[in-house]
Design a binder for these strands. Structure first.
Lengths: 201, 201
DNA sequence: ACGCGAGGTGAGCAAGCGCTTAGCCTCCGG
DNA sequence: CCGGAGGCTAAGCGCTTGCTCACCTCGCGT
C-alpha cells in the first residue's frame, strides 16, 4: 500500500541531465540550505559546468520551486489516499500518520528542503506552495473530525491537535539520520502509536 | 514560576550597541536565515554602519554562536528546573513540556535561529552546542524514565518517545505566529496535555 | 553530404559579499 | 589645555555569486 508513492524518485524527469541537476540540488540544499548553495556546486554534483544549469532551468530558484512542489504533491497524495480510504477513522489516521512520517524519514533530504526552505521561494511560488500546505492541513484535520464525530476519538482542540500531529511528522525530516537506530518504517509505527494516544483512540 | 527565564531578553549584554546588534541579528537570521543575512542588514537594523559590527564581534558567525549558545542555555535551564522539581513525574513532565513549548512560542524568533541555523556554526562551536542538546535530551528522557519506573507512565519506546516530545516542542518555533489564534501559554497547555496522553499518564 | 537544433563549455561580467583600514569625533584624567 | 583611548564611519579590497555569451560538438532528417 502506497509503495508507488514511496519509491518514486525523480525518475520521470525528462532529459537525463535535468534530472541529475535536480538530484544534485536536493542534496546540496538539504546539506547547506538554499542560500549557502552555489550554482557551481549543483552543476558540479551533476558532473557539468555551471552554465549547463541554465539550459534546463531559468534560475536557481526554479530548482527550489520544482523540488518544493514535487514534495508537497507527494505529501498531499499520501494524506489524500489515507483520507479517502475505507475503514474507521482510527485506521485511516493510523495509515496517514504512518505513511506520512515514514515518507519524511525515507526522503529526509527532499523533505528537509520541502519543509525548511520554502521561505526562499519567490512570492508567487511561495503562495502556490502555501495553498498545497493548507489542503494538506485540511485533510488531516478532516480525519480527526470524523473520529470525533464518530465518538472514536476524544479531542478537546481539534485544529490544535491536527497542527501538532502534522508538526510532529514534518519534524522527522530535521532529526532523522540514516545511520540512526530506527528505520523509516519503525518511525512510522512509533509515530502512529503516539498519535493514536494523542487523540484518545 | 520560571518567569525570570521567560522575560530575560538580551538586557544583560554589555555595551548598548552590542546588544542592538545581537537583537538585529536574531531578527534577520530568523527572517531570512543565516546565509541570506548580510552584515550590512544586521548593522542597519542596529542603526549603525557595517564596520561597527566588527568592533563588538569578530565575525558574523560569532553573532550566530552567541545567539545559539544563549538559546540552548535557556532551554537547558527550563528542563533542568522542571527535572529537579519536587512532585510526581507526571507533574514534572507537565511543567517541562508546558514551559519548554511556551518558550519556543514566546521567543520564536530566537528559537528559530537556535533550532534551525546550528548547521551554519563553525565545527568547534557546532560541537559545543551539540553537547548542550544532548544534555537537554537526557533531562527529558530522565523524567520519562522516572515515570515509567514509578509505574505512572506506560511507554514502549522511551528514547523514541522522548525524541518525539522534544521534536514536537521544538517545532513550535517553526509554525508559531504571533497573530495566530493561540497565545504561547495556550500552546504550552495544549502541548502538555497531548504529551500526557502520549506517555499514557 | 550537410545544415541545424539541442545540449554543452570556458571565460567572464556586474553586483554583492565579509571584512579591513585610515581617519574622525567625543569624552575624560592629569 | 591636551593627549590618547574607545566608538564609529566612509571608502574600498579581494573574492564569490548568479547568470550570460560566443562558441563548439555531436546525432539526425533530408
Amino acid at each position: 500500500m502506497g509503495d508507488a508513492v514511496e519509491s518514486a524518485g525523480w525518475s520521470d524527469v525528462e532529459p537525463d541531465a535535468a534530472r541529475r541537476l535536480l538530484e544534485g540540488a536536493v542534496e546540496a540544499f538539504a546539506e547547506r540550505g538554499y542560500h549557502a548553495t552555489t550554482t557551481r556546486d549543483i552543476a558540479g554534483r551533476a558532473g557539468m559546468s555551471p552554465a549547463a544549469l541554465y539550459i534546463h532551468y531559468k534560475t536557481k530558484e526554479e530548482l527550489l520551486y520544482r523540488i518544493s512542489r514535487y514534495g508537497h504533491e507527494r505529501a498531499h497524495e499520501i494524506l489524500a489516499r489515507a483520507s479517502a480510504a475505507d475503514g474507521p477513522p482510527a485506521e485511516r489516521l493510523r495509515q496517514a500518520v504512518h505513511t506520512f512520517s515514514r515518507w519524511h524519514a525515507e526522503h529526509h533530504t527532499t523533505a528537509r528542503v520541502v519543509q525548511y526552505e520554502i521561505s526562499s521561494l519567490s512570492p508567487e511560488h511561495y503562495e502556490e506552495v502555501l495553498d498545497l500546505r493548507r489542503s494538506i492541513d485540511r485533510l488531516l484535520r478532516g480525519i480527526i473530525e470524523d473520529g470525533v464525530a464518530a465518538g472514536d476519538f476524544s479531542v478537546d482542540d481539534v485544529p490544535g491537535t491536527a497542527l501538532a500531529v502534522l508538526s510532529l511528522c514534518v519534524d522527522v525530516a530535521r532529526w532523522f539520520n540514516v545511520n540512526g537506530p530506527r528505520t523509516p518504517d519503525e518511525v512510522g509505527a512509533l509515530y502512529a502509536d503516539l498519535v493514536r494516544r494523542m487523540v484518545g483512540a
